[in-house]
């Protein structure tokens, strides 16, 4: 099934490129002149120690914070000046390190909200309940249900999202992003707080999502087993700068990466 990605690889087209991206807070440079590219259709990893600036990068790509300088280019267009909802509309979706599902809404409504972003009808059509509106609402609900099933939480559609077990809430957050039918999916530590079994099954689902939808995934993750098993290409950050890049095997052996991140003493499997 990996052939999908290999076929796309031939094009070697970058869906996302960061050029000289810098984020300064008062006296701290969180991200310093960062440049990298993410190939279309790939699962790309961004790793680094706590405070390396990974989440800041995701915040800038998704528009919730604006870079001090530098460019973010998505499919040839600048993202760095756009508002978060515009960026989401262009096909960039993200999850959060600390969960931000809508706890008081049902799981289905959580996904429906995102699915609705892609459908249009005006207020009058909604108020009058026109056939157009009804058929769209039905389509939205059906696609939301399909996505919940894809993420393995189809049985919880009507449950209040905040009452789901933690691992399912993480899955719900990814499901909500998938409803946006993103071309680029940013996953900010999706395996945080999961036990090894849950991580393995999540990694399997993430790979299946890429295979079924062809969406590009940028994975920010601490769990090395998830990163090494999923990512085709990995960037390593430390103190706001890029200190290494390459496929998982290269990263495993890169001495600077090992020193800065993996620990000088041991090598990760």
């Amino acid at each position: 099934m990996l052939c999908n990605w290999k076929a796309m690889c031939v094009n070697r087209e970058n869906i996302l490129a960061l050029r000289g991206l810098t984020m300064k807070y008062k006296s701290v440079v969180a991200v310093d002149n960062l440049s990298f590219a993410v190939e279309k259709g790939s699962i790309c990893g961004l790793i680094g120690t706590n405070g390396a600036g990974k989440s800041t990068v995701v915040n800038m790509i998704s528009g919730s914070s604006k870079p001090t300088s530098g460019e973010i280019i998505f499919k040839g267009a600048r993202l760095d000046k756009l508002s978060p909802d515009r960026i989401a509309g262009l096909g960039v979706a993200r999850t959060f390190q600390n969960l931000r599902i809508f706890g008081k809404l049902s799981a289905l409504d959580n996904v429906r909200i995102a699915a609705q972003a892609r459908h249009s009808y005006n207020f009058a059509q909604m108020a009058l309940g026109t056939p157009h509106y009804r058929s769209q609402e039905r389509a939205i609900t059906e696609s939301a249900q399909r996505i919940l099933h894809r993420m393995g939480i189809g049985h919880y559609a009507e449950a209040e999202a905040g009452s789901l077990p933690y691992g399912h809430q993480r899955r719900l957050e990814i499901a909500r992003c998938l409803a946006l039918e993103p071309e680029l999916l940013l996953l900010d530590e999706p395996a945080a707080g999961m036990n090894p079994n849950e991580s393995v099954s999540l990694a399997r689902d993430i790979r299946r999502v890429r295979e079924e939808t062809g969406t590009t995934i940028l994975l920010i993750e601490h769990d090395m087993s998830v990163v090494m098993s999923l990512c085709e290409y990995i960037y390593v950050m430390d103190f706001g700068i890029l200190i290494g890049e390459g496929d998982p095997d290269t990263i495993r052996r890169d001495p600077e990466v090992i020193r800065a991140y993996l620990g000088a003493e041991r090598e990760y499997a």
């Binding site: 919730s64 978060p84 909802d85 599902i101 809508f102 706890g103 995102a114 946006l180």
Partner: peptide
């Protein structure tokens, strides 16, 4: 509940 997350969902 969370306007930041809602905006990111295209709201």
């Amino acid at each position: 509940e969370n306007s930041t997350a809602a905006k990111l969902m295209g709201v």
